[in-house]
Write a protein that binds this DNA or RNA. Structure first.
Length: 484
RNA sequence: GGUCCCAUCGUCUAGCGGUCUAGGAUACUGGCCUCUCACGCCAGAGACACGGGUUCGAUCCCCGUUGGGACUACCA
């Protein structure tokens, strides 16, 4: 952390199951930092603990990152000079550096079984003493070790933790000191031969020349271990930045328990990536200032890692929703359409040009893409279904009269699709039916759109042709007829 | 249990010793606009966790307490 080396940050997910918004946020912080400071952003996959069937989740992560607008300069798919970028392909590296440590007497094989360890641990806990590894195998006599080997026991490799204090100079928290006494000798290579997380990150970050490690706060307490390893291995120390966690509404750490927390879920609910990334960077204060709704470029400029991370923040869906609506309003219709088409089924049949025309008409009325569906139908489908509320309005006594008058006014109209024509027609209906205000407008809305919420009637008129308008009125009238 | 982190309206924050009868956003309530919803505009309600210091003066500095969180794994 003393040098002025190249800025390199990294995101290293362990793709197990769903891709979580807290994880996305960490990725975003790294990306934003890299883009702002002109550094490199590395994507590394931590998959040493994964079963082959879980490998598939890697795709989900990559796809999720791309969706939200994050790109990477080095990674599993794009390659890079310091690869490979998948931990499962770096195994010999971990072996090599573990050997360096054991050869120098800084690490040793440990033959304790998991059962033994757990028993000791529970005893210590029961006595109220800090549960640390006893160091039992640290000075194992050679003959005893050979005996265990011939028994067929596979050792894990433990790192020798000395004493003294370790200072983490955290970019966000400032100096934090830990006492080495409180850390037991920890495992760097498991008995399966797989590296433990705390060892693999250090080897990888050092070899990949990561200059700033941006990760969530739960790793802060692990950092003294990392520092010890950096020093033992003779690696240059990077700088560390530990940002606070995202919380659920119950103030506990956001997790799968909070249904909303998965990227896929949010995506399916109709949030756009511009809004989600904006929210994730904003929550906790990372964008500062008074302007909250920002474009990607503005975000990169405004992002401040120091501010982003001190206090844990609650994930507030209401605010996300508001932000989504704001983004929807100034996103180009082409992009809205793209995201909307991405969402789901049966939409390829729609006329693209028509959708593009009509999205701006309804966009002000929605907060999420999901809500777009019903409103778009008003303009793209010949036959529309009446909502329960609409049916109720149509059943009212005056509805028939109003709609009959509307049909009569529509019939001779040349082109009803203009503001003037619309006003003229409404006027005629008003006179003919004798109704005005809500009694006049609501049946028209119900009959023409099938919904009681939606864009202004004038807009509905202006974006439907005469035959569709008449068709809708007919359908409404025949619905009314069946109710009598 | 031990270690570490954190602490301003319900939520996200501004505030970096006097400018604070604490500002903004969101959510909520009321009103305006209006054919509906949304947008927009106006108004209202709503917070410095507690106790000690330091100081002429604390939201802001220090120490405790309380509360929340993380770590303490052959998970990451």
């Amino acid at each position: 952390m003393t040098d002025d080396r190249e800025i390199r940050v990294r995101f290293s997910p362990s793709p197990t199951g769903m891709f979580h918004v807290s994880t996305v946020r960490t990725a975003l912080f790294n990306w934003l930092y890299a883009r702002k400071e002109g550094g490199a952003f590395i994507l590394r996959i931590e998959d040493t603990d994964l079963s082959p069937s879980e490998r598939y989740y890697e795709t989900i992560v990559l796809e999720g990152l791309r969706w939200i607008g994050i790109d990477w300069d080095e990674g599993t798919d794009v390659g890079g000079p310091l690869g490979p970028y998948r931990q499962s392909e770096r195994l010999e590296l971990y072996e090599k550096y573990a050997k360096v440590l054991t050869d120098n007497g800084l690490a040793y094989p440990c033959y304790c079984t998991e059962e033994e360890l757990r028993a000791v641990r529970e005893q210590m806990l029961a006595k109220g003493v800090p549960p640390r590894y006893s160091g039992k195998c640290r000075k194992l006599p050679d003959n005893k070790r050979r005996r265990l080997e011939t028994e067929g026991r596979k050792p894990a490799v433990r790192f020798k933790v000395g004493n003294g204090s370790i200072q983490v100079n955290d970019f966000i928290h400032g100096p934090v000191t830990f006492d080495a006494e409180s850390i037991g000798d920890f495992i760097i290579i498991r008995s399966t031969g797989m590296p433990a997380y705390n060892f693999a990150v250090v080897v990888d970050d050092a070899l990949m020349k990561v200059s700033l490690v941006i990760r969530s706060e739960d790793h802060l307490a692990n950092t003294p271990r990392h520092i010890l390893l950096y020093k033992a291995l003779g690696f240059d120390l990077p700088q560390f930045a530990h940002h606070a966690l995202l919380l659920g509404p119950d103030k506990t750490r956001l997790s799968k328990r909070h249904g909303i927390a998965a990227l896929e879920v949010l995506r399916a609910q109709g949030y756009v990536p511009e809004a989600l990334s904006n929210y994730l960077a904003w929550v906790g204060g990372g964008l500062g200032g008074t302007k909250e709704v920002l474009s990607r470029d503005e975000m990169v400029k405004a992002f401040d890692l120091k501010k982003a991370g001190k206090k844990a923040a609650v994930f507030d869906q209401a605010k996300l929703c508001w932000m989504n609506a704001a983004h929807l309003r100034f996103l180009p219709p082409e992009e809205v359409l793209g995201y909307w088409l991405d969402m789901g089924v049966g939409r390829i049949l729609r006329d693209r040009k028509r959708l593009l025309e009509v999205i701006p008409v309804v966009i002000d009325n929605v907060e999420t893409l999901k809500q777009l569906e019903g409103l778009l139908e008003i303009f793209t489908e010949k036959n529309i279904a009446f909502s329960m509320e609409a049916e109720e309005v149509l059943r009212a006594d005056h509805a028939g009269k109003v709609l009959t008058a509307l049909a009569a006014a529509l019939e001779p109209a040349e082109a009803p699709g203009s503001k003037e024509a619309y006003q003229d027609i409404v006027k005629q209906v008003e006179v003919a039916s004798g109704y005005k205000g809500k009694s006049l407008f609501m049946p028209i809305r119900a009959g023409l759109s099938g919904e009681m919420v939606g864009p202004e009637l004038e807009k509905i008129f202006c974006h439907l042709d005469k035959s569709t308008l008449l068709h809708r009125v007919d359908r409404a009238l025949s619905y009314i007829a069946t109710q009598d």
